[in-house]
């Protein structure tokens, strides 16, 4: 759907990271974890294209959608200037989100940096469904560790890792995984490509199904322009699939990580 959602709150939570909430009952009702909205940043022709931003929270009762995003360029910088009361021009919910596990399954969720944004929505649903969830969040510094308090509030155990050692384990979040992954039934991950590649490698090694959320420069968001392609293996052959419609969530085993 295409709509204007009224901004309720919008704040700079750390560094370049912003948390925005806007009102839309229809969107909150329709949204699933791993899906995204396509947002018009600014009202002029520069920047021209919308920006795909994953859905961080969807409160069906209150009709509120939350977006957690990082200012990475001209578009998101303009977005960060919007104020409560302003109308946000959004398309969505778009894309194929995460497939939920059976309530009896033990789940590991691995986030890197801003990749935690769509995973919060997922973890919330997993907790409500009664899944046993173990969360891992990695980032460059303690300042880049996002949504940790919110996730802990859900009663989920969170393991942290930072590149500079300013919080949690000093090193890659994927270093924490090997022994744990052998005991889970399913893995979900979103973050930098090399991190997801490592998670996919470990998931394959321990034979645990994993879902990854990919990212690519996007045009239309609805599968028409074929800009946001990623390489997916089908019957051993690598073919282009659209991140916006066949994805952004794919099974880790199908992704061509060597592309």
């Amino acid at each position: 759907m295409l709509l204007n959602g009224k901004l309720i709150t919008h704040k700079n939570i750390a560094g370049d990271y912003y948390l925005m909430e806007f009102k839309s009952h229809e969107l909150a009702e329709a949204a699933g974890p791993g899906q995204f909205v396509h947002v018009k940043c600014g009202s002029t022709n520069d920047p021209l294209l919308r920006r795909p931003i994953s859905i961080h929270k969807a409160d069906k009762d209150k009709g509120i959608i939350a977006l957690l995003y990082r200012v990475a360029g001209k578009g998101t910088r303009l977005l960060s200037l919007m104020e409560p009361g302003d109308l946000l021009d959004v398309m969505g919910p778009l894309g194929n989100g995460f497939q939920l596990p059976k309530p009896s399954e033990k789940v590991a969720v691995v986030a890197g940096g801003i990749g935690v944004a769509p995973l919060f929505f997922l973890v919330q649903l997993l907790v409500n469904a009664g899944n046993d969830v173990q969360m891992y969040i990695g980032a460059r510094t303690s300042q880049d560790l996002l949504a940790v308090k919110d996730i802990k509030k859900l009663g989920v155990d969170v393991k942290l890792a930072t590149d500079d050692g300013s919080a949690g384990y000093h090193g890659l979040v994927t270093d924490l995984l090997p022994e744990k992954l052998q005991k889970v039934d399913r893995i979900y991950t979103c973050g930098p490509f090399p991190m997801m590649k490592s998670v996919a490698y470990l998931a394959n090694k321990y034979n645990v199904p994993a879902q990854v959320s990919l990212e690519e420069k996007m045009g239309c968001g609805v599968g028409a322009c074929l800009a946001c392609s990623c390489k997916i293996k089908i019957n051993g052959e690598s073919v282009y699939k659209r991140v916006c419609t066949e994805g952004p969530v794919f099974n880790a085993g199908e992704v061509d990580w060597e592309c």
Binding site: N45, P47, L48, E216, K217, M218, G219, C225, C228
Partner: peptide
């Protein structure tokens, strides 16, 4: 990929 890049008031594509 990348197959798309933004320019002022425009888009470059190489699908």
């Amino acid at each position: 990929v990348p197959r798309i890049a933004e320019t002022p008031a425009g888009v470059l594509n190489s699908i």
